[in-house]
Design a protein around this nucleic acid. Sequence first.
RNA 1: GUCCCCAUCGUCUAGCCUGGCCUAGGACACCACCCUUUCAAGGUGGCGACACGGGUUCGAAUCCCGUUGGGGACGCCA
Length: 477
Amino acid sequence: MRPSITVSVRTRFAPSPTGLLHVGGARTALFCWLYARHCGGSFVLRIEDTDRERSTEASVNAILEGMAWLGLDYDEGPFYQTQRMALYHDQIERLLSEGKAYRCYCTRERIEALREEQRAKGIKPRYDGRCRKLSTPPPGAPDPVVRFKNPREGEVVVDDLIRGHVVFANAELDDLIIARPDGTPTYNFTVVVDDLEMRITHVIRGDDHINNTPRQINILHALGGARPVYAHVPMILGPDGQRLSKRHGAVSVLQFRDDGFLPEALLNYLVRLGWSHGDQEIFSVSELVQLFDIADVNKAASVFDFDKLLWLNQHYIKQADATRVAAELERHMAQLGLDVGDGPDLSEVVNVQRERAKTLVEMVEKSAFAFRDFDDYEETAAKKHLKTVALEPLRSVRESLDSVSEWTPQAIHQAVLEAAESTGVKLGKLAQPLRVAVTGTAVSPSIDQTLWLVGKSRALARIDAAVAHIERAAASA
RNA sequence: GUCCCCAUCGUCUAGCCUGGCCUAGGACACCACCCUUUCAAGGUGGCGACACGGGUUCGAAUCCCGUUGGGGACGCCA
């Protein structure tokens, strides 16, 4: 008996470094990564930077940083296509010498005019193959491009893991350019050479590439390679049903980080866009690795729902380890100009605020009162709560708070309760003025926790200030 | 225009392959109520969809055809 050879799965993510890592690309990368991990295979990262005009190092870094933040680690790469030029040249020469590709001397002007004409006639713009049978270059011709000799008849059948059975007529295709006049190869060619050379078994990529697939398969055959399995992932759209772009707001993965999202929340959100496992909404990464299968991905495009992402983010903020969230919080503290050393321990802030914030940025904003004094009371809050009736309760609570020796939420709670009792007001009548006094606003965590975060000396000083504020207002009235 | 693809609540989706268990389930959002020292969080309930039209069938969200709508591709970009 022959031992069965198990070919291990190899997937790749192949972004072009012409911009940021946006959520669409990130989801594609996630699917590639998950599938490789699920199958115990390898995940390869390849940077498609053959367009030197538009590729930038900054984009490469943004992609790498984005993937690192999401935890999408790769087993091989990053490989840069610009460093593999010799490989492409060899293959182009080979196709040329085997008569599977040819030099084309048509000018851009002619091609453009041709396209124009075809469009006017209502047919698909395609190269007409004029140089296909040329044996010698026409006199005075410009440097030629190299075109692939695409089959004119027959069809290409793709059994896509997501789309199913898709058929393309070769007659719909044309002889695409695989090398520019300067010899540099183009996308459709480098992809095929690389996927072949890197022994990629599963090409998982965006839906916008489905029409490139038959061309690539034809090139692949010409090169004598074996086909990988294809899976075309549907697009992510904006709320208006149009392809997601900057004008829809945050689309860059790193922007989400800066806006206070946890990577696990983005990951969880992204994976549920087009994929599901029954009614389950919350998935840990290890669960995903176990459950994910590319064949379970939907065919239809989906709309990015920011609200659901917010919900997931809060879910993860609520259940994450406080010290870990605290560490993440630091960067946002700095961003808002708050001094971490000038207030309570950040993990205490997390514990108090995690049910009140959908993002880390929001959490920091809502906790600013614990790190620095505010300039003014919020007008409506002061008008409503800092009135003469509050004077007595505030003085009373100041006194009982002053006598608290151990500044804990429990002790503070007791002190506030006592003050309310001794002045004969309901807790609400005391808590709200106190809240405004201490935070400047009518909204904050429970009053004992709020006071606790503020700290004793600051709290007392702020109550004094509020009392003075009320007295001043009464005197001028 | 040509080719390719898609179509279940506002949104993400389950169900579709292998018709009956679907008077279509879950989640986000929204609304109401409960809890409550504010805001949240939590709890309970509500609103809300098989794009349309034809078939096939005893029976269709599920299979077939068409229509409509949407997306993608048609680069010396990737």
